[in-house]
């Protein structure tokens, strides 16, 4: 059945509402003027030029990208075994573990950021790479666990049993059978963790220092002090990265399906 005209109008309205700010920001990012005004007085690439020639912002972009990759890897390394245990094994405290892993999602990030600062400061880990990786991983792991648990649960149990009867130890069966079949879930989880870390602002605000900062934090600070369209260009850069990751996942998981699942 084709959706009715009313539903389509409603959907169009929704999309317009959601995307119009992006359109405005995109337009401003190409502004030739000196201020955040819409419509822009003229179009140019000057703010993109300025963005790419700003040492501070480029350093922050690099930091954020590296941090997000490391966090995604850490979250998968921690999340995958934990998810496997939750999905497959029966042990006392399983529900408690699942709850514990989801707990950071329930805390306001402001509280989490403050708590992390208080915990990491005495360890001299504030404003360091390990500190940021740890903090971002805390927020990313629940996402990784949630997605991977679903992915593992979706793998039929008898595949693993078949692997056992063929002589695979439980570990080898998990690595050779369950994990490859759940791989699209892992790709999706990794991408989401990358984005969670890449966009994370509040916790980072507590933990960055003069020598180590992330892109969202720098953007926030920039917007606080300046009113030029550079921040719009920066916002477009963030959107572009997120879009690239989503497309990459689509490509990878689609590719995987074509190779392995059909």
């Amino acid at each position: 059945m084709r959706p009715g005209i009313l539903l389509r109008l409603f959907a169009a309205l929704g999309y317009t509402l959601l995307l119009s700010p992006v359109v405005v920001v995109a337009a401003i990012s190409f502004s030739a003027g000196d201020f955040l005004t819409f419509p822009p007085p003229g179009f140019s690439l000057r703010w993109y030029q300025q963005l790419f020639s700003s040492g501070e912002l480029m350093a922050a972009l690099r930091n954020s990208a590296v941090l997000a990759v490391v966090v995604a890897v850490v979250a998968l390394l921690v999340g995958a075994p934990a998810s496997y245990a939750i999905a497959r094994l029966e042990f006392p405290g399983r529900d408690a573990l699942a709850g514990l892993l989801a707990a950071p999602l329930l805390l306001p990030t402001l509280v989490l950021g403050l708590a992390l600062l208080l915990a990491l400061q005495p360890l001299r880990l504030a404003a360091t790479w390990p500190g940021l990786v740890l903090a971002h991983s805390m927020v990313a792991i629940p996402f990784a666990t949630r997605i991977m648990t679903t992915a593992f649960t979706a793998v039929p149990r008898d595949l693993e049993e078949a692997a056992w009867t063929l002589g695979a130890t439980p570990l080898r069966a998990a690595l050779r059978v369950t994990l490859p079949i759940a791989a699209p879930g892992a790709v999706a989880a990794g991408a989401l963790c990358f984005l969670v870390s890449f966009d994370e602002t509040v916790i980072s605000l507590f933990l960055v220092g003069p020598r180590l900062s992330t892109l969202p934090v720098e953007m926030f600070r920039y917007a606080e002090n300046r009113t030029d369209p550079l921040v719009a260009a920066l916002a477009m850069a963030l959107i572009f990265v997120a879009l690239a990751v989503v497309l990459l996942v689509e490509r990878l998981v689609g590719f995987q399906r074509a190779l392995g699942r059909e």
Binding site: P156, D158, L159, E161, A162, A163, T165, G167, V177, P180, I181, G260, R261
Partner: peptide, 15 residues
């Protein structure tokens, strides 16, 4: 145990 099992669903590895 070295037992060959054919499952009701066959349980072939799809990948």
């Amino acid at each position: 145990r070295n037992m060959g099992v054919v499952f009701q669903s066959y349980a072939l590895f799809p990948h």
